[in-house]
């Protein structure tokens, strides 16, 4: 019993219900792993992560670093003979991992930046100066330069619970 992993079929069903309905189509040919530029240099094995999802090995998948090594390049999706929506499935499983509290600090920082300015990166006076010098408005007409737009953006994140999920406010 000690080396047995407990399958959680509710996990596989949840992935399918959340939009990963092609999960069961995978017949483990390995075209995905062979096409993966990340797997070429890491322990990330696309075929394996899909198999684990099919088998309901929830903790193996959700707690793994490999889940976050996919750059979403879609090489696997383009070549999959079964048209499994591999990238969509990986992203859905990342959502589940985040719900369980697996979220890198660097990613929390980006969530905080989104809450602050509605953008993934910070923005400062040097860039304002560069923009003005080129004949662009110092603040772009996005949430950065539009207070009402930024408030809408924040309000939506609070409404969906993104602030609590990612630990920012």
């Amino acid at each position: 019993m000690s080396n047995m992993k407990e399958p959680d079929m509710a996990f596989a069903d949840a992935v399918k219900a959340a939009g990963g309905k092609t999960l069961d189509l995978c017949y483990q040919c390995g075209t995905c792993t062979a096409s993966c530029p990340s797997g070429r240099r890491t322990a990330f094995r696309t075929r394996q992560i899909i198999r684990k999802a099919q088998l309901g090995l929830k903790d193996d998948v959700l707690g793994s670093d490999e889940l976050w090594m996919c750059t979403t390049c879609y090489s696997c999706v383009e070549r999959c003979p079964r048209e499994v929506e591999i990238v969509d499935i990986i992203l859905l499983m990342r959502n589940m991992a985040v719900q369980k509290g697996y979220m890198a600090d660097a990613h929390k920082k980006i969530a905080a930046s989104l809450m602050k300015g509605g953008a993934t990166v910070p923005f400062g006076d040097d860039m304002r100066k560069l923009r003005s010098g080129m004949g662009l408005p110092a603040n772009p007409p996005t949430t950065i330069g539009n207070e009402k737009g930024l408030e809408e953006f924040r309000k939506i994140m609070r409404k969906t619970g993104f602030d609590k999920l990612t630990g920012v406010n």
């Binding site: 959340a18 939009g19 976050w68 750059t71 979403t72 992203l91 859905l92 990342r94 959502n95 985040v98 979220m103 990613h107 980006i110 969530a111 989104l114 509605g118 953008a119 993934t120 007409p141 996005t142 949430t143 539009n146 009402k148 737009g149 930024l150 809408e152 953006f153 939506i156 994140m157 409404k159 969906t160 619970g161 993104f162 999920l165 990612t166």
Partner: peptide
């Protein structure tokens, strides 16, 4: 100019964290 448009939101991060937020911010 799309007045007050926000982050797309970023596919690699926001969609990885929470699809519902990604959809709502994108829809905005």
């Amino acid at each position: 100019d799309l007045e007050g448009a926000g982050c797309c939101p970023a596919p690699g991060v926001v969609r990885s964290f929470d699809e519902a937020t990604w959809l709502a911010l994108g829809a905005r």
